[in-house]
Design a protein around this nucleic acid. Structure first.
Lengths: 110, 110
DNA sequence: GATATTAATCGTAACATTACGATGAATGAT
DNA sequence: ATCATTCATCGTAATGTTACGATTAATATC
């Protein structure tokens, strides 16, 4: 059917899957890395930076916005983006809880 | 076109995106959580556990296998799966490098 | 007011993902 | 040898994703 059956899983698990989805594209990771590294918001030049069409970049930015990771405000003719720091820290915590799990298994058993 | 333009991005960024994709589904996260918590490999009962069709579960297991995160060996009539502990630790490291980044920005600037 | 710039949105094509049922291959039990 | 069990694989339908060009909306400049 092509649609994830979210009802089968816990909210926590679904949440992690959604966060993973939000960053499951190199363009979006590049955007986040860029926003992480600058001390101000970034206005405009993502398109040149990424090498994708303007509309495509806009879509990726929207995806990150929907995930709550970034914020954009109109500033003159252009739109400026910055990381939502609080949400980024929430993101880090959630993903952290998942990946900080030490395997109970010590070595390959099969 | 529907195909990610991986050539535009660095290997590192593409690698993180692929890892994120591998866990970007609640069924696959549930499988990993299960394998993380058991001290032995898990034989069989994922289908009942997840509530998805047998063929669907098989596909998710294959995806995790392709990502290198799990290992499966045939054991009698059934197949037993366990986490690839080394790969899991690699995974943790890579994702960790990404999410351990502290935002340079201290508060919302726009 | 007319024009240029910037980015969002719309429409669309190609491809990927998710899911299921059916079939097939391998092993264990009878 | 036959049958049941278990999982992988195949085929396929529905939906989602990625990407682009074209259009639209908003602001800045002339």
């Amino acid at each position: 059917m092509g649609t994830t059956k979210t009802k089968l899983f816990t909210n926590e698990v679904n949440a992690i899957a959604n966060l993973a989805k939000a960053v499951a594209h190199p363009a979006r990771i590049t955007i986040i890395n860029r926003l992480l590294q600058t001390e101000t918001c970034v206005c405009g030049d993502f398109v040149q930076d990424l090498g994708l069409a303007q509309s495509t970049v806009s879509q990726h930015l929207l995806a990150l916005k929907k995930a709550g990771l970034i914020q954009g405000t109109i500033q003159g003719p252009s739109t400026c983006y910055c990381l939502d720091v609080d949400q980024w820290n929430e993101f880090r915590k959630s993903i952290g809880n998942f990946i900080n799990q030490e395997a109970a298994l010590k070595s390959l058993c099969c």
